[in-house]
Design a binder for these strands. Structure first.
Length: 279
DNA sequence: CAATATACCTGGATGC
DNA sequence: TGCATCCAGGTATATT
């Protein structure tokens, strides 16, 4: 589910309340998420430590401890991080619970278990973070996310532009919803072979990536079926989506009928009139 | 190496 | 109401 805006909304919610707080107890469900739960490291490196700050890289949240250790969290498709009083009953699919000082729990709830929990120990965190970060693509709000760089990266590729934007080791943070919305705004057909895009095409992609992701963050993210912020409130950007999930509806720009096709196993929504095919 | 297919999970919507 | 089927915001791995 969560793409960059939803992860960022989650980060801001955590940043409000976690820094300076002691992790008193760590609990986990017996189930594996994308990887096995790192029980030993959670106990040794996270329990008893104080949280310094919360960062984001790609769709990952990095909870940095004062010791230098890092708790790495990914929300997968259905993950939500909630902050609530310790007395609130736990729910099915709560797979990680940090009991913090001040009667506050941080709980990772993830029904499909595509999420991820990892720990970088204080002694090796710097090296592990570099290796991790080197595997991630360009940050949409980073200095290297430019039309020139994207154009260069696309030269050796023959994949559809939508697949390119969603490929996490090329561009970080963009998933199915926002890839569709960015390409609609930029008036580019999602199947366009990425090496054929012009510098002007890339300038529009960069511009609309920035504006759409910013608006989505400001709206609290998109709650298509079940995304919630850390306070349990949904986002509202789904009300502003122009094409995602709107098969059969009228294009908001030209009133042609929005269509849905399969691209690399994911649903692509676009306006066949506004987003003319380009080879 | 690059592109594509498949696997990992649960639950909600849909159709019979 | 029950049951089968399809679909879903992601990513790692296997296969071509």
């Amino acid at each position: 589910m969560p793409e960059l805006p939803e992860v960022e909304v989650t980060r801001l919610g955590l940043l409000d309340r976690l820094p300076g707080r002691l992790v008193q107890v760590v609990n986990w469900s017996g189930q594996r998420l994308r990887g096995l739960m790192p029980r030993k490291l959670l106990q040794e490196e996270i329990a008893g430590q104080r949280i310094r700050t919360v960062d984001r890289r790609a769709k990952y949240l990095l909870l940095r401890m004062e010791s230098g250790a890092v708790l790495v969290l990914h929300l997968g498709m259905t993950g939500k991080l909630g902050l609530m009083a310790t007395a609130v009953p736990r729910h099915k699919h709560d797979h990680l619970v940090l009991s913090l000082e001040g009667d506050l729990d941080m709980r990772l709830n993830d029904s499909r278990r595509f999420g991820f929990v990892g720990v970088w120990p204080a002694a090796t965190a710097v090296r592990l973070e570099k290796e991790f970060s080197d595997r991630q693509g360009l940050e949409p709000f980073g200095p290297r996310f430019t039309a020139v760089n994207l154009h260069a990266l696309a030269q050796r590729r023959s994949i559809p532009v939508k697949t390119f934007l969603m490929h996490g080791d090329i561009v970080a943070g963009i998933g199915n919803i926002y890839a569709n919305e960015i390409l609609f705004a930029a008036r580019i057909h999602p199947l366009t072979t990425v090496s054929l895009l012009t510098p002007a095409d890339w300038r529009r992609i960069v511009k609309y990536t920035h504006s759409i992701l910013k608006k989505a963050i400001a709206a609290g993210g998109s709650s298509i079926s079940d995304f919630l912020g850390t306070s349990g409130h949904p986002g509202y950007f789904q009300l502003q989506l122009q094409v995602y999930g709107r098969k059969g509806e009228a294009c908001p720009r030209c009133a042609a009928t929005i269509v849905k096709i399969d691209i690399s196993g994911r649903s692509a929504f676009y306006c066949p009139h506004c987003q003319g095919r380009k080879a």
